[in-house]
């Protein structure tokens, strides 16, 4: 089994890169808004379908296709906030209500994509499928290397934004203590908007990468949302760096696990990790109690 170890780790990194993007956006949204945004999956699907539509159906150049796909993802994520979460928040809806609303949004957009594009699976036939390069005993395609690189670069960019940029630092301040942030004159709502734009942008990138790597179908966002959520819990739901690390950990553990166990256990492995963390380390790896304390 040792001979396939490099390949198993590579497989874990490839999918981990996508989980990390989803988890980072999810954690960012949670830490700023203090509720779980399960509608996040809809932004992933929106990005993927927009890429399919522009690239495969409309035959647009890849650059414009990517821009439109990212805009679509951001728009869907932002609309979730403007049309559903914000009005609910104004009525002081509890986090549970917002969570259920998020699940509703996920289902709503899933059905919307069925309506617009039909239920059948779509293949974005852009990059010719060939055998990958052999690196350190693992076979990996250029696209997959690109996926890992893009994911790491974006996540580093997000890190810089949160820790070096004025807006990013303010966003963390809101995450840390919303009441105090309001007292010192920070416009919380503006940062809610910003967090949805950035989080959905990351989801859009994940959607584009998955569309190129696998294929596009209405339920894709739901599956990735589950994995992204587990990743976020591993890292500490309110911690963006934790979410990123959690994504890679989940990807690698899942693939190592089924490297040795029958592969039908993949889902069980992911959920076992979730339960272990929820029970023994509910704050995750990087989570700090301060950041997740309830309102």
């Amino acid at each position: 089994m040792l001979n396939i170890l490099p390949q198993l780790i590579a497989n874990g990194l490839i999918i981990g890169a996508v989980y990390a993007l989803v988890a980072a956006g999810f954690s960012l949204l949670f830490s700023t808004n203090r509720h779980l945004h399960f509608g996040h999956g809809a932004a992933i699907t929106a990005g993927a379908y927009a890429l399919y539509f522009t690239l495969t159906e409309r035959r647009m150049p890849i650059s414009s296709a990517i821009i439109i796909a990212l805009l679509a993802a951001v728009l869907v994520g932002w609309l979730c906030f403007v049309l559903v979460y914000y009005p609910l928040k104004k009525k002081h809806a509890s986090a549970v209500v917002l969570l259920i609303a998020g699940i509703g949004l996920l289902i709503f957009f899933e059905n919307l994509f069925v309506l617009l594009f039909g239920t059948d699976v779509k293949v974005v036939d852009y990059i010719a499928v060939t055998k990958g390069l052999t690196i350190l005993g693992a076979v990996i395609t250029k696209l997959q290397l690109f996926m890992i690189a893009v994911s790491l670069a974006l996540l580093y960019g997000l890190f810089l934004f949160l820790y070096k940029n004025k807006y990013g630092i303010t966003m963390r301040a809101i995450a840390n203590n919303p009441e105090l942030a309001v007292l010192i004159g920070i416009d919380k709502t503006k940062f809610y908007h910003l967090s949805f734009v950035i989080g959905s942008f990351l989801a859009g990138v994940a959607g584009i990468l998955i569309a190129l790597e696998r294929n596009v179908e209405p339920i894709m966002g739901t599956g990735l949302m589950v994995e992204g959520f587990i990743s976020a819990v591993i890292g500490g739901v309110a911690s963006v760096p934790g979410g990123i690390l959690g994504g890679f950990i989940l990807g690698i553990v899942e693939n190592l696990g089924i490297g040795f166990l029958p592969s039908g256990f993949k889902g069980a492995i992911a959920f076992t990790i979730l339960f272990i963390f929820l029970i023994f380390k509910p704050m995750g790896l990087f989570g700090i109690r301060k950041g997740t304390r309830g309102d």
Binding site: Q7, I14, I15, R214, N255, P262, S263, G264, K266
Partner: peptide, 12 residues
Amino acid sequence: EDYNQESRDLRT
């Protein structure tokens, strides 16, 4: 080997 019907990653 078996895999779940929803699985979209059979690499491993």
